[in-house]
Lab assay of single mutants.
Amino acid sequence: MALNTPQITPTKKITVRAIGEELPRGDYQRCPQCDMLFSLPEINSHQSAYCPRCQAKIRDGRDWSLTRLAAMAFTMLLLMPFAWGEPLLHIWLLGIRIDANVMQGIWQMTKQGDAITGSMVFFCVIGAPLILVTSIAYLWFGNRLGMNLRPVLLMLERLKEWVMLDIYLVGIGVASIKVQDYAHIQAGVGLFSFVALVILTTVTLSHLNVEELWERFYPQRPATRRDEKLRVCLGCHFTGYPDQRGRCPRCHIPLRLRRRHSLQKCWAALLASIVLLLPANLLPISIIYLNGGRQEDTILSGIMSLASSNIAVAGIVFIASILVPFTKVIVMFTLLLSIHFKCQQGLRTRILLLRMVTWIGRWSMLDLFVISLTMSLINRDQILAFTMGPAAFYFGAAVILTILAVEWLDSRLLWDAHESGNARFDD
């Protein structure tokens, strides 16, 4: 018995066209964080690309023209004298008006014999932002004059995390709450300039795509075929072959399989920071003279006294001054041990922890910024005066060393310790 099946006739004509040209192939790229070699397709503007294995951002879609970056830099340069030299806060102490600005706080630190601690604050609040705007201006002028731009481009990517104007702005709020127990506070004209400078700096850093600047100024022929001998440069993120001198053909720094002496430098910085954190938390970090009496505060006791007036601000200072430094030390110690013992479990967790400490590390400088600003506000000789204690130097040095330890660690070593050939990683 035959089955009668109805015929289905399409209502619209289906047209099949042959592909007349070869589909576009992607360029081969190595991930600078996990060293995976993959094919990167062509990316349009405002599109980002991520590593298929570790999800690290390979290409950032946010990109401004150099002219727009230069305009932002010149605007920031105009704001800087007002943000640093004009009063941020006014207080009335014992019937006398006192003005506080950024430069005055750094000068008070240096004047009291601790120039190293003052230079830490100076670099993060004044030096690094000033280098940022002058570097962008150098790129703008240098591109037109045919100057060598490689050193500036190499420095810009590392400079971003040292620009800490946003953290200093939080420190202004913390210092205001600490001082309000002794005097009446009012915002100064410099505060508005400083807030504007923070906003412009944040926007500029978020749109400063150094890798795209490398592509514009020093374009290189990408690798179009897969080759395990391809290496990625950690300076400019170019994937290719080393030249005859073993250097990256684009930025001219040595092109090595792994960062040289990464573990040794990381261990040295980490152990030194552990040693410095002990006096930083045991010795007094601030000293207040009130009517001839002397009151010393460690980091913890200062947080407890701050909690009596504002528990939320005390929580912020606790996280930045105690929780973050010790968390960074514990995480980095764990990561280094996992590399030495070739741990194969929990790779995803370790990668996330490394990215976390990379982002939060700079916030530990908050305590030094609060001390710097408070020193310029309260300084009335023996009637009422505020000065920093010996722990300030140890704390600042420990924070900087932990930042350097994270920067010096080559994250690809975590993958080397893991089993080879993993296309995915999980716990």
Score class of each variant (00 low, 15 high):
1 M>S: 00
2 A>N: 06
3 L>G: 06
3 L>K: 11
4 N>R: 07
5 T>S: 08
5 T>P: 07
5 T>F: 07
6 P>F: 07
8 I>W: 06
9 T>S: 05
12 K>F: 03
15 T>W: 10
17 R>V: 07
17 R>G: 09
20 G>S: 06
20 G>N: 06
21 E>Q: 08
23 L>N: 09
25 R>I: 07
30 R>M: 08
32 P>E: 05
32 P>Q: 06
36 M>L: 08
36 M>P: 00
38 F>G: 05
42 E>W: 04
42 E>C: 05
44 N>S: 07
46 H>C: 06
52 P>K: 03
54 C>T: 00
57 K>P: 07
57 K>L: 07
58 I>K: 07
60 D>F: 07
61 G>M: 11
62 R>F: 06
63 D>P: 08
66 L>I: 12
68 R>K: 03
69 L>N: 04
75 T>S: 13
76 M>Q: 04
76 M>I: 05
80 M>Q: 04
81 P>A: 05
81 P>C: 03
84 W>G: 07
86 E>Y: 01
88 L>S: 04
89 L>W: 03
93 L>R: 00
97 R>D: 02
100 A>L: 02
100 A>C: 07
102 V>F: 10
104 Q>P: 01
104 Q>F: 04
107 W>C: 11
111 K>S: 08
112 Q>R: 06
113 G>E: 08
113 G>T: 11
114 D>H: 11
116 I>M: 13
125 V>M: 07
126 I>D: 10
128 A>K: 00
129 P>T: 07
130 L>C: 15
132 L>R: 02
133 V>G: 03
138 Y>P: 02
140 W>K: 07
144 R>F: 08
145 L>V: 15
149 L>K: 15
152 V>C: 10
153 L>A: 15
154 L>E: 02
154 L>F: 05
156 L>W: 13
158 R>I: 13
159 L>I: 06
162 W>Y: 07
162 W>A: 02
162 W>F: 10
167 I>D: 01
167 I>M: 03
167 I>V: 14
167 I>Q: 03
168 Y>Q: 04
168 Y>R: 00
168 Y>D: 05
177 I>N: 04
183 A>D: 00
183 A>C: 05
186 Q>N: 08
186 Q>H: 08
189 V>W: 09
190 G>V: 03
191 L>W: 03
192 F>W: 13
196 A>C: 15
197 L>D: 03
198 V>F: 15
200 L>V: 15
201 T>C: 13
202 T>M: 15
204 T>P: 05
205 L>C: 13
209 N>W: 13
211 E>M: 15
215 E>W: 08
218 Y>G: 09
223 A>W: 12
228 E>F: 15
230 L>S: 14
234 L>W: 14
236 C>T: 00
236 C>Q: 00
237 H>E: 12
238 F>D: 13
241 Y>N: 14
241 Y>T: 02
242 P>S: 13
242 P>L: 13
243 D>T: 11
250 R>H: 13
253 I>Q: 09
253 I>F: 03
255 L>A: 12
255 L>F: 15
256 R>G: 12
257 L>G: 10
257 L>E: 12
261 H>T: 09
262 S>H: 15
262 S>P: 07
263 L>N: 11
265 K>N: 09
270 L>H: 02
271 L>R: 00
277 L>H: 01
278 L>D: 04
279 P>I: 15
283 L>N: 07
283 L>H: 06
287 I>L: 11
289 Y>L: 05
290 L>V: 09
291 N>T: 15
292 G>V: 09
292 G>K: 08
292 G>R: 11
294 R>C: 04
295 Q>G: 08
296 E>C: 07
301 S>R: 08
304 M>S: 12
304 M>R: 10
305 S>R: 04
307 A>T: 14
315 G>T: 15
315 G>C: 15
315 G>P: 04
317 V>K: 00
319 I>Y: 07
320 A>V: 15
324 V>K: 02
325 P>R: 00
326 F>T: 09
330 I>Y: 13
331 V>M: 13
332 M>F: 13
333 F>W: 11
333 F>P: 01
336 L>C: 11
337 L>S: 10
340 H>L: 10
340 H>Y: 11
340 H>T: 12
341 F>D: 06
344 Q>N: 15
344 Q>C: 10
348 R>I: 12
348 R>W: 13
349 T>Y: 13
350 R>V: 08
351 I>T: 10
352 L>F: 11
353 L>Q: 07
365 M>A: 03
365 M>S: 04
370 V>A: 02
370 V>S: 01
375 M>E: 09
376 S>N: 01
378 I>S: 00
379 N>C: 04
381 D>T: 01
382 Q>H: 10
384 L>K: 00
384 L>I: 05
387 T>W: 07
387 T>K: 05
391 A>Q: 02
391 A>P: 01
395 F>G: 06
395 F>W: 04
398 A>T: 08
399 V>E: 01
400 I>E: 04
401 L>C: 08
405 A>R: 00
407 E>N: 12
407 E>K: 13
416 D>E: 11
419 E>L: 12
420 S>E: 08
422 N>G: 12
422 N>Q: 06
423 A>H: 09
